[in-house]
Nucleic acid binder design. Structure first.
Lengths: 159, 159
DNA sequence: TTCTTTGCAAACAGTTTGCAGTGTT
DNA sequence: AACACTGCAAACTGTTTGCAAAGAA
C-alpha cells in the first residue's frame, strides 16, 4: 500500500506537481479503499485526519489524479450525477446499484471488455472509456421480494 | 407516428392525467426524433412551436412520461451529468460518444443484454435498467487520427 | 367548479473558479 | 524568491420546487 502512494508521488513529481500535505493525505485515503467513493465521502475521511482540508481541494486534487491516470473517475449512481473515484488498480469494476437498499454489486468486466472489442472491430471506433451501469435489486433484496411475492421468480430484465 | 401519440394520450388519460397542449406538443416533438435529446434540446424544439412553454414544464413532463414508461431516460454524455430522453420504442440503444467531434455512435444491445442475463443467472440479482456508456473516437475521427499518426492503428481499449 | 397543470422565479446539489494568502521547492 | 497550491466564498449548470394564475374535466 505505501508502495502505491510512493509511486503516485513519484508520478506527481515527475510531472512537475508539488507534493503537498493534502495530496499525500488524499492518496492515503484513496489507497485505503477498495471501492468507489464520492468527493464528499473522500472529503469526510480526509477531514477526519486534517480538519483544515477543503472540499474544493478534494475536487481539484481528484481531478488532477484522474488526469494523471492515478484514479478512475466514474458515474455509477442510479441518477448518474455524483462522480465517484477510486485508485486505478486492478481490473475495471462495474456495478449494479440496488434501488431498494443502495448496495453495490460488483460485476466482473469480461463481458464489457468483449463488447468494447466488438465495437472496435465492427464499427471502426476507438474506445477510451467503457462504463456499464445497472440498477436493480441486489441478491438479498431479490430473494426477500420473491419470498413475499412482490417480485416474480422468473427474473425480469429491462426492455 | 400519430399512433404512438394517441396511445400515449390514452395512457395518460387512463392514469387520470390531463391531456394538455404542452403534453401533446412534447409527445409530437419526441415522436419526431429517433435519438436521445436532452431537456434543453427538447425545450428548443417545443418552444419553436409554442413560445409560451417553459423549461420547468419540459422537465416535469419528461419525468412524468418516464414514470409512465413512455420515454427512456438515460445519461450518455462523456460526463454523465445531463439527462437525455427518447420515446421508448424499439430495442434499447447505447452509445459511444466521440470525445473529438461529439458524434454518437449507436451500439446494438445484444451484448449488453447477454451481460444482464449472466448477471441475473450468476449473481442472483434482478436488473431494472442496464446502461452502457462508451467514450472514444467515432469511425471518422479514428481514421483521421490514424492517418496523421496521432493514434496507433492497433486500436486501444480501456484498462 | 374542482383539482391538475402551468410559468415564473427562486431553490437546490454537485462541481468549478477567482482571488488573496500559504507553503513547496 | 518564485510560483504552484490552498481555503474561502461566490459562480455555475442542470434540475426541482413553491406559489399564484390558468386550464382541463
Amino acid at each position: 500500500m505505501p508502495h502505491l502512494i510512493d509511486d503516485a508521488e513519484a508520478l506527481l513529481h515527475e510531472h512537475g506537481f508539488k507534493i503537498t500535505g493534502q495530496r499525500t493525505l488524499l492518496l492515503q485515503v484513496l489507497a485505503g479503499q477498495s471501492t468507489y467513493l464520492d468527493a464528499e465521502e473522500i472529503y469526510e475521511l480526509a477531514h477526519a485526519q486534517d480538519t483544515s482540508i477543503s472540499l474544493a481541494t478534494v475536487y481539484r486534487t481528484l481531478n488532477l489524479f484522474a488526469d494523471l491516470g492515478l484514479v478512475d473517475h466514474r458515474y455509477i449512481e442510479p441518477e448518474h450525477r455524483r462522480e465517484v473515484f477510486r485508485m486505478s488498480e486492478g481490473p475495471e469494476q462495474h456495478y449494479l446499484t440496488c434501488v431498494r437498499c443502495g448496495a453495490r454489486v460488483l460485476i466482473h468486466a469480461n463481458l464489457l471488455n468483449r463488447m468494447a472489442h466488438e465495437l472496435v472491430r465492427r464499427k471502426g471506433v476507438s474506445v477510451i472509456t467503457a462504463c456499464a451501469c445497472f440498477t436493480g435489486y441486489c441478491p438479498d433484496c431479490t430473494a426477500e421480494l420473491q419470498q413475499t411475492g412482490k417480485l416474480p421468480t422468473g427474473n425480469s430484465l429491462p426492455g
